[in-house]
Design a protein around this nucleic acid. Structure first.
Lengths: 135, 135
DNA sequence: GTTCTAAATCTACAGATGTAGAGATGTCAC
DNA sequence: GTGACATCTCTACATCTGTAGATTTAGAAC
């Protein structure tokens, strides 16, 4: 737990998703991969990627005149970072209102609800196995 | 469908929460209210608030030499904006993985799980009453 | 009216972000 | 070694964000 869960900008999300798909990869590949959706030039992509390396979101390894990039945070970590941000600021850390808002705002099929149901059930078993951590 | 759900920075969250608490209110009150936690000067608070007015997050009404501020987005809207951002970028719009991550990452008591349970049940009833499609 | 003061206005600046052009350099093919 | 091409490096600039000092103004108190 060194890095304190990142929050990414939209541009950074686009880049890191491409990197997750392509890694290890060079900047030109990422640029090509994103070109249809983002229309960014090589320079733009490269600048973003280097700034992300500086921030610890990507790692770069230089081989000859080629720079290979890799993600330095996992998808899980990035997802969690975003969730935590919302949880902390929009909901003052209270999980239930957050889930409530989520459930209320999205259209969910009965099947979706079933799946959520089983997530909760699974969770319940876990807690049973490992009784209340602390209180 | 007026404002397309906002995303707020940390500073903006601090301000708008104060405004929700105090509105209608003048900038000095907000500054005082936040001083213990944020330690911002009046200038800082005022600048932030005026920028938020420009963005449509707050509204301002000038009375004599006093400017009264109000929130221009509801707590719900702001919360949803944050959730929508996470949902869209971190989870590509897929709700279930998002809830799953949330449940997996937070420590939840049996009581919490019960509450989530009843949220889902309530949701299920709604869907039943108003079968799929519009809402 | 002069002073005090609360509130406002104006201006500024550093750092982050989005975006990209221009030029340098390494590599391969002859 | 000369080109052609791929890739990199450097620099730039506008906008947004966090932060705040300096100056001005409107109203209150004498």
């Amino acid at each position: 737990m060194s890095t304190p869960l990142p929050e990414l900008t939209e541009a950074e999300w686009a880049i890191i998703k491409a990197v997750w798909d392509l890694e290890p990869c060079a900047a030109p590949s990422v640029q090509e991969h994103l070109h249809p959706s983002m229309n960014w030039t090589y320079s733009t992509v490269r600048t973003l990627m280097d700034r992300m390396v500086a921030k610890g979101l990507l790692s770069a390894e230089k081989i000859r005149n080629l720079t290979l990039y890799r993600a330095a945070v996992t998808r899980q970590q990035a997802q969690l970072g975003e969730l935590r941000y919302a949880l902390k600021h929009a909901f003052d850390g209270a999980l239930k209102p957050m889930v409530e808002t989520l459930l209320a705002s999205e259209k969910l099929s009965a099947a979706d609800l079933d799946e959520l149901q089983s997530l909760i059930d699974a969770r319940r078993k876990d807690s049973a196995r490992q009784p209340k951590s602390k209180r």
